[in-house]
């Protein structure tokens, strides 16, 4: 089914829109949820939450790119689950966040409010200036939540190269964010 047709069904409050979206992007979203959560049951619940969330949000929102929109929603829901489970006990999908911690300077800056959209735009500008392979590796790892080995395989580079490329990209991102004046 065409994305526009799916969205029209959503706007008409027709549940076939959900079926269409689930059939078309179910695999995409479960892959992301599975990458981040690592447990089949959690991923399944997270994907179901994604359909519910999209059903609630889509009118009035009309996403330009439905695939990325649903993927992002699923990713945010997975993050909430991770937050919840790590509040109870550590474990599961945390390695990725530990890596991201390297991009932060560690100091608390309470006067500057965090704005995900603004920071996201800064990261986009940074990624546009990156080497395509480094950019793809970064997004495969930190957007799609893939393991380093999977991301490396996706880009057709050896795992060692992928690891060092990711590490360099993180260092550069930290510098770029500091330069942009985003609180890190």
């Amino acid at each position: 089914m065409d994305d526009n047709a799916i969205l029209d069904l959503y706007f008409a409050r027709d549940e076939r829109g959900l079926t269409g979206a689930a059939a078309k992007y179910g695999g995409y979203c479960s892959a992301i949820a599975m990458n981040l959560l690592g447990k089949i049951q959690d991923a399944e619940e997270c994907v179901n939450d994604t359909w519910l969330g999209s059903w609630r949000a889509i009118p009035p929102t009309r996403p330009l790119n439905l695939r990325v929109y649903l993927g992002r929603l699923c990713r945010n829901l997975a993050l909430n689950r991770l937050r919840y489970s790590s509040a109870q006990k550590r474990g599961g999908g945390i390695a990725l966040l530990e890596e991201l911690e390297e991009c932060l300077s560690g100091g608390q800056t309470p006067d500057q409010a965090f704005d995900a959209k603004e920071t996201g735009a800064a990261i986009s500008r940074f990624l546009e200036g990156c080497d395509p392979t480094a950019r793809t590796l970064f997004l495969r790892r930190y957007w799609y939540g893939e393991s380093v080995a999977d991301a490396a395989r996706f880009c057709g580079v050896p795992v060692g190269t992928a690891k060092s490329t990711l590490s360099r990209t993180r260092t550069k991102l930290k510098e770029a964010l500091e330069k942009e004046g985003v609180c890190v």
Binding site: L64, N65, R67, V68, Y69, G71, R72, R75, N76, L79, L82, R83, L96, L97, E98, L100, E101, C103, L104, T109, F114, A116, K117, T119, G120, A121, I123, S124, L127, E128, P132, R135, T136, L139, Y142, W143, V182, C183, V184
Partner: peptide, 20 residues
């Protein structure tokens, strides 16, 4: 900003980049 917020911010990168 903490690591979860950074992860969230990465989620907000341009659609075109994610698509690529």
């Amino acid at each position: 900003m903490n690591k979860e917020q950074l992860f969230e911010a990465i989620g907000e990168v341009d659609d075109s980049l994610v698509e690529q």
